[in-house]
């Protein structure tokens, strides 16, 4: 499907309120990160918010990681 419209995508497909409530900004092992709450009550990492480039090389902080 191709939609040509000046409207924003979110105006046409409004996000469900779950999308907002699931995403959290948390601190894990001293690093600030965005994470989604999974159905079993854990967190899955979405984005690491750090200015230290070496944090991004650590496998513990790769996006998609299940945080424990």
């Amino acid at each position: 499907m191709i939609l040509y419209t000046p409207l924003a995508q979110s105006d046409i497909f409004p996000p469900s309120s779950d999308d907002y409530t699931n995403r959290h900004c948390i601190t894990h092992e001293g690093r600030l990160m965005l994470a989604d709450r999974t159905s079993d009550g854990g967190y899955q990492m979405v984005q690491l918010l750090s200015t230290n480039p070496y944090d991004f090389l650590e496998e513990r902080f790769t996006p998609g990681n299940i945080l424990s």
């Binding site: 230290n52 790769t62 990681n65 299940i66």
Partner: peptide, 16 residues
């Protein structure tokens, strides 16, 4: 999770 296995470890940096 990501399709990747190993990421190198590194020391501290003075440039952020």
């Amino acid at each position: 999770q990501l399709g990747q296995v190993n990421v190198p470890q590194a020391p501290d940096t003075n440039i952020h």
